[in-house]
């Protein structure tokens, strides 16, 4: 009895738990099978309420890991749980807010129309949608843009809209793929404060980046991915003594 309770409490303590995850892409071309390894034997745990950064070079498996968590890809081996729920399970996807890398929207819609659409898909109560959108728009400082078409949006505004879309259904876990790529310094700074705000509200943030300096500034813990494997998890205290870049380089060059 106590055993089960303990298991549950452990499970709930971890927002994401990944165990021996392997993803091998198979593609057949002209009858020949090509395989590429996305991630191999990856185990990782993200605690509830923390900001976890995943760093790695291009092609190290960051996006693959994220897509596996979201059920956009299916693992070859291993398992993933989100707040104790085995994934992929579409019914539990309301627990996650996701920001894709370089988000894109159909240009013909306005920001508000899209947010209403995504809110409906998240299964939100119709009556709550307008108020929630208003709130998110305020948080992200995009109120004046809400009724403009996406075709008039700058890259920064697109990114904000994508974040708004991930927050609108108020999920406890946020998964951001390349949160700051392509943003100007001001935008980067705003994202940083946003992530802090989310942490204050008790959200768990899991994000990937290849900008070490950014990760260093906001994360509680950082995982270093290289060649599809998690080579090291670094605590904030570790890089306060030296610096994250050196740790990263030394791990990657091994």
């Amino acid at each position: 009895m106590t055993d089960i309770m303990e298991k549950n409490s452990i499970a709930i303590k971890s927002a994401i738990k990944i165990e021996t995850l392997t993803k091998i892409y198979r593609r057949s071309h002209l009858g020949r099978l090509h395989t590429t390894t996305g991630v191999k034997n990856l185990s990782l745990e993200v605690k509830t309420g923390e900001i976890f950064g995943l760093v790695g070079l291009n092609g190290s498996g960051k996006t693959t890991t994220i897509k596996l968590i979201l059920g956009l890809l299916f693992p070859t081996d291993g398992k993933i749980t989100v707040f104790g729920n085995p994934m992929p399970d579409r019914k539990k996807l309301h627990l996650i807010g996701y920001l894709p890398e370089l988000p894109y929207f159909h240009k013909k819609f306005t920001g508000k129309e899209l947010l209403v659409f995504y809110s409906k898909l998240s299964g939100m109560d119709r009556g709550l949608i307008p108020g929630r959108i208003q709130e998110i728009a305020g948080l992200l400082e995009m109120v004046p843009y809400m009724d403009k078409r996406i075709s008039d949006y700058s890259k920064g505004m697109m990114q904000r809209l994508a974040i708004a879309q991930s927050l609108v259904h108020d999920p406890p876990l946020l998964v951001f793929d390349e949160l700051v790529s392509g943003l100007d310094p001001l935008g980067i700074r705003e994202m940083r404060t946003l992530v802090q705000k989310l942490k204050e509200r008790g959200k768990t943030v899991f994000f990937s980046s290849h900008l070490i300096s950014e990760v260093e500034r906001v994360c509680d813990r950082v995982g270093i991915l290289h060649g599809g494997s998690l080579v090291r998890v670094v605590e904030q205290t570790d890089w306060q003594r030296t610096n994250l870049e050196d740790i990263f380089i030394s791990e990657v060059k091994k």
């Binding site: 979201l70 059920g71 956009l72 579409r90 019914k91 539990k92 996807l93 309301h94 996650i96 996701y98 894709p100 890398e101 370089l102 988000p103 894109y104 929207f105 159909h106 995504y118 898909l121 998240s122 299964g123 994508a162 879309q165």
Partner: peptide, 15 residues
């Protein structure tokens, strides 16, 4: 290609 599909498929709806 435009990745807009992700934003629909990661919602809690059956495919």
């Amino acid at each position: 290609e435009s990745k807009t599909i992700y934003l629909i498929l990661i919602k809690p709806i059956p495919r």
